[in-house]
């Protein structure tokens, strides 16, 4: 049951990945220059640092609440 669902999902994923190559592209100006000069990776880096930082913050809050929960159970 689960297996056939999983197969269906995998099949869908593979198909949708295949479809992507069939799309034709017209000439529209994009930030290719930004990409080729490598600066876009700086932005990606900044965002990764930001989000990893925010996640660490969230995890630390989560931990603090867990500790409070434990202390409260003792009382």
């Amino acid at each position: 049951m689960l297996n056939s669902n999983l197969k269906k999902l995998l099949f869908t994923l593979i198909l949708s990945a295949a479809v992507q190559f069939t799309y034709a592209q017209e000439k529209v100006e994009m930030a290719d220059g930004l990409r080729s000069s490598g600066k876009i990776y700086v932005v990606v880096g900044v965002l990764l640092i930001l989000f990893i930082g925010l996640f660490l913050f969230l995890i630390s809050i989560d931990r603090k609440v867990s500790r409070l929960e434990k202390e409260n159970r003792k009382d």
Partner: peptide, 28 residues
């Protein structure tokens, strides 16, 4: 929670670096 971190970070990397359709006005 682990899945959440993975999916959001994947979105950040994929969303910024993978190729997108070239559209007028919208661009990047």
């Amino acid at each position: 929670k682990i899945l959440c971190v993975i999916l959001v970070l994947y979105t950040l990397i994929g969303g910024l670096l993978f190729d997108v359709p070239h559209k007028k006005i919208l661009n990047e």
